[in-house]
């Protein structure tokens, strides 16, 4: 058995954290080959070669792969699929876009957002916004799997594994990239941050969200938001933590003014330590928090910033 793992490459750089976590989840299944695809991917390939457990790295460079458009990326993966029993990727928005397309081209079912690898055919995954965990056994000859990175630890440093370049099938010409609007930030990336501070509807306004950001900066944390806060326009959607947003599992998660809808809990309940600050003592968030503080956030958060 052998695993082809799609490395997470953004603008030619490897996103090490999600890739290393996916490698760690995949390596029990067989020899892991990481594919780094992009307009330029050599640097990403060199970085992937230093992840422990990686046997080989394939570098695919072509302008058509530059923005991870689904059609050329899926065609690229399918062209390599013959040699592998498993085709896997960290469950990023890019992989969720590409991997079901790969699966359909191979006439197999995709197994999305896997949170546990039981054996080569059997996987655990959350359904119903994390309200149930389903164990499924695939009858397909090849398994196409995306891995929920918050469920796995990152593989350490190793290697270097050997790096090869591969041919790219080219561009089917179905879609073209127009622009990216990426929020510039000095803060750590939300899904890999050690500390996350999130605000909810209780924060009350976009202006007051500055208080959440201030606490985050004090803790060197990433900033998150509940769906209610995003829907209310207090925070951008790429900050959203929850079933319809990002899934995080930091060492410390601070939920401020978040009631704790199931939707939100599905995105953060695997955090190691959860702190909740909410003025409503009956808020469901307190049922899963390690430390709960029943207080007005506009008093508690400035005091917390001062005393940390």
């Amino acid at each position: 058995m052998a695993v082809l793992l799609l490395g997470e490459v953004n603008d030619g750089e490897l996103a090490l954290d999600p890739t290393a976590k996916a490698v760690n989840a995949a390596k029990a299944l067989g020899e892991v080959t990481v594919l780094c695809a992009g307009a330029s991917a050599a640097a990403a390939g060199a970085a992937a070669a230093k992840i422990e457990g990686v046997a080989k790295v394939l570098v695919a460079e072509h302008p058509a792969l530059s923005h991870r458009l689904a059609e050329p990326t899926a065609a690229m993966i399918v062209s390599l699929a013959g040699d592998y029993s498993h085709i896997m990727a960290p469950a990023t928005s890019d992989a969720k876009n590409v991997m079901p397309r790969v699966a359909a081209l191979l006439d197999v079912m995709v197994i999305s957002d896997v949170s546990g690898v039981v054996d080569a055919d059997t996987f655990e995954r959350p359904i119903y916004a994390g309200n149930a965990i389903q164990t499924v056994r695939s009858k397909d000859a090849k398994k196409v799997v995306t891995l929920r990175t918050s469920a796995f630890k990152a593989a350490g440093k190793g290697g270097p594994a050997k790096v090869e370049t591969v041919d790219v099938p080219g561009d089917p010409g179905l879609s073209e990239w127009v622009e990216d609007k990426v929020a510039e930030s000095d803060r750590p990336e939300l899904t890999s941050a050690g500390v996350v501070v999130s605000g909810g509807r209780g924060v009350g306004s976009q202006g007051d969200f500055a208080l959440i950001e201030k606490l985050a900066d004090k803790l060197g944390a990433a900033v998150g938001a509940s769906r209610a806060a995003v829907d209310a326009g207090f925070a951008p959607n790429d900050w959203q933590v929850g079933q319809t947003g990002k899934v995080v599992a930091p060492e410390l998660y601070v939920a401020v003014g978040i009631s704790g809808a199931i939707q939100h809990l599905a995105g953060m309940k695997d955090s190691k330590i959860i702190v909740a600050i909410n003025k409503d003592p009956d808020a469901p968030i307190f049922q899963i928090a390690d430390y709960g503080l029943v207080a007005d956030l506009f008093q508690a958060v400035p005091e917390l910033i001062e005393k940390l």
């Binding site: 953004n10 923005h67 458009l69 990023t92 928005s93 890019d94 010409g173 179905l174 879609s175 073209e176 990239w177 127009v178 622009e179 990216d180 609007k181 990426v182 929020a183 899904t191 951008p236 959607n237 790429d238 990002k246």
Partner: peptide
């Protein structure tokens, strides 16, 4: 315009 991990991506599809 697509919601992606880092923000928004705009693409043109045939």
């Amino acid at each position: 315009t697509r919601e992606v991990d880092g923000g928004l991506q705009t693409i043109k599809v045939k």
